[in-house]
Write a protein that binds this DNA or RNA. Structure first.
Lengths: 226, 226
DNA sequence: CGGCTTATTATTGGATCCAATTAAGGGCAA
DNA sequence: TTGCCCTTAATTGGATCCAATAATAAGCCG
């Protein structure tokens, strides 16, 4: 209630991401405003922003509809994330890691090693891995030292499932997740090795491939529009 | 007057791109609204959109300031454009060119050849080359067949000087421009050759390098903030 | 009976008004 | 004289109102 604008934006984002508003749903100002208990103004702002982010598309001259996102869309967005993070890794390797970045990355690797050392995963480990994973990618991006890459990535990550933060782990099959996440973590190790040795091309190629590790195809197939 | 909203947006974009509103300039709603002769509402919309596009940054909790764009920012944005168009080229090569794309690209090459055949450039040729250049990049992007790449590029191109459309030709030194644009056109030829032969990696590498052809460093150095 | 035209309604965009928040400046006290 | 607090002004965000526009439905004419 303190910030209706931000509230509306968050709510709509969440409803779109969660599938509560499936692709193709028409969003008019007045009904949504009434549904959320605010005036039309914050809704208008939110709709414009969500359009800019690519979550909504204009329905002719009359309002917006929720974007229908296909599996191909997600794969393409992940591919884009791959080349962008790859470029960040290339630049980081060429510039060299500074002290704090090096320490942070080593910490990420150690945290991951601790998770996998016991040979299996327990429920809380998924969240711990996600946290470490986000940190790793964030540090790497910062080490790339390019505002343009950061912005392009932030824009790209608006798409549901495309972000690093949405790695869609299946908590019901911890055995399978162990292998998947362990593989991803090994890629982290390899990327760090390449960075430390100044091997830009290798770091880039690894990060490009690593983007695919986010995808858990079978899980994604359910709950997609069109 | 028919469309105050779009008018305000266009005007502000142009004033920012032209340097009439230099980096760091504070933009408050009321003064700009009065200056443009409209109410605060379309200005508010425009400011939000321009913030999303990255042309404005928030000044604390009070209004926006025009983003200061450095030469490094532009180089980084061009680098990002390179990897994105490179990815589009890679995908286009792997998917294969369809009939209309192939024809359109050949037409672009022929148009360019005609321009350079006479051994020198005349004033109107610059505009003709720009037109052909935009067409070439557009067709290639379409051939990549990825909405994610297109969106990432569109967002990246909002930055002044970063877009394909801003190749900053120096009309006072047509001799130098002849060599520069001819080189760029040769890269177009090479990219098409790679595409036609299904050489994805080659096409990608060429497009990545080709992005740099937009930059005319000496011309850009003047008129930049900070 | 069907197509075209017109009228009505739904919906967005713009303007003005109001409240809330923050920054700045001045005054008072130590 | 300086620092802190209080008051005031400026500016943004939200709500309501009004106008313009497009879509839909109904009625009339062919």
């Amino acid at each position: 209630m303190s910030k209706p604008g931000a509230q509306v934006l968050m709510t709509l984002r969440q409803q779109i991401a969660s599938g509560e508003l499936p692709g193709g749903t028409r969003l008019a100002e007045i009904p949504t405003a009434q549904a959320l208990g605010v005036s039309r103004m914050p809704v208008r702002m939110a709709l414009r922003i969500l359009e800019q982010e690519g979550l909504l598309v204009r329905a002719g001259a009359r309002g917006y509809t929720v974007r229908s996102v296909t599996l191909d869309d997600i794969v393409a967005a992940v591919e884009v994330r791959g080349v962008l993070e790859g470029l960040a890794a290339l630049r980081a390797a060429e510039r060299g890691l500074d002290q704090v970045a090096d320490t942070a990355l080593r910490q990420c690797l150690a945290d991951g090693d601790a998770l996998f050392a016991k040979g299996h995963l327990i429920e809380g480990d998924i969240a711990a891995y996600e946290d470490m994973n986000i940190r790793f990618h964030e540090v790497l991006l910062a080490a790339g030292g390019s505002q343009a890459i950061r912005e392009a990535l932030m824009r790209n990550d608006h798409l549901p499932f495309a972000s690093v933060k949405a790695l869609a782990a299946d908590k019901n099959d911890l055995e399978r997740e162990f292998r998947r996440l362990n593989y991803a973590h090994m890629q982290h190790h390899a990327v760090y090795d390449a960075l430390a040795k100044g091997q830009g091309a290798r770091a880039e190629a690894l990060m490009r491939e690593h983007a695919n590790a986010t995808l858990a195809y079978t899980d994604l197939l359910s709950g997609l529009s069109s």
